[in-house]
Amino acid sequence: MLRFGIDLGGSKIELIALADAGGVLLRRRCPTPQGDYPGTLRAVGGLIAAAESELGQTGSVGIGMPGAESAVDGRIKNANSTCLIGEALRADLQALLHREIRLANDANCFALSEAIDGAGKGAEVVFGVILGTGVGGGIVVNRGVLNGANRIAGEWGHNPLPLPEEESLPPPRCYCGRFGCVETWLSGPALAADHLRNGGEALAPEQICAAATAGELACEQTLARYQRRLAKALALVVNILDPQVIVLGGGLSNIACLYDAVPRLWTAHVFSDVIRTRLLRNVHGDSSGVRGAAWLWNERS
């Protein structure tokens, strides 16, 4: 079965074609038409048409995008690509491509990719985390994405960070309108802001991590705060979902010390005498989202 995956990003649209066993047959990308919904549809249609012409066969199509479908009318909500908001993306693409389309949030696609043939392969329950410019989460159970009654399953980034250590601090305001969301503490910009707020220099997250590795005290302290907060936030996931595997993605997933420090720190917050949940780095990197979109068509879907 030929599977096409589309990662509908804010700056680029990427296509991948997977063979039945998951091997990559073709990969293409094009710029995302900025603020242009009809142009975005045409770009997706053009990528699919060109790929099918090149491969000489048609395939299933899965789409990963930065938002969710409303449970009321199927229109897109919560998307940072604002031209998608309020649009019937699935219906419009089905009319354009003349076939059924499967659609999922990009964090769900990341989690699915890693559950199918990545770091979480073989696990019954996988929680996928994206730690980047924003913070997202996706849940996969028995190789299928869990969407939920409100289509927001896995929206871990917009829950408040557990206290008490932060209770004396004014909670940061999130773009969603709430205060103290996990995203405001654990995204890349949040890490940089926390360092600055605590007397450090204006540094990018990768610079903070490099300086911490080199023994710079202020950066070490910033990274220690980040590890503690990530451990508390993930402990909530373990307490509720109890996954076999938590996979980290996004730019901050490259911080090597997280994989030892966070499981050690979350023991104080997980309600169990033994913790078998594994915290793992992703296998497929930046390709996880587009691969997961293709895997929306699998035998468990």
Rank of each mutant, 00 (worst) to 15 (best):
G46F: 07
L47F: 12
R29T: 01
I76V: 14
G39S: 10
N78D: 14
D73Y: 05
A79T: 12
T82V: 08
D36L: 06
G56K: 06
G67Q: 07
T40F: 09
G39V: 04
S53W: 11
G45W: 05
S81T: 12
R42A: 15
G59C: 08
C30I: 13
E54D: 13
A50Y: 03
S70M: 02
G64T: 11
A50T: 12
S53E: 15
A50P: 09
G62K: 00
Q34L: 13
P38V: 02
S53K: 13
G45Q: 08
A49M: 10
A71K: 00
A71F: 12
P66N: 07
P31E: 15
N80E: 07
L47Q: 11
E52P: 15
R75Y: 03
C83Y: 06
L55P: 15
V44F: 12
S70T: 11
L84F: 09
V44G: 05
T32P: 02
I48K: 06
A79Y: 01
K77N: 04
M65G: 02
G67H: 04
M65E: 08
V44C: 11
K77T: 15
A49F: 10
P38K: 00
T40L: 11
G59R: 11
S70I: 06
Q34H: 13
I63M: 03
A79P: 12
G56W: 14
S60A: 08
L55M: 07
C83F: 09
K77Q: 14
R42N: 15
E54V: 03
N78T: 03
P33E: 11
I63K: 00
G35V: 08
G62W: 05
G39E: 12
A50Q: 15
G46S: 12
G46E: 11
L41G: 10
I48G: 14
E69H: 03
I48T: 05
T40A: 04
G35T: 10
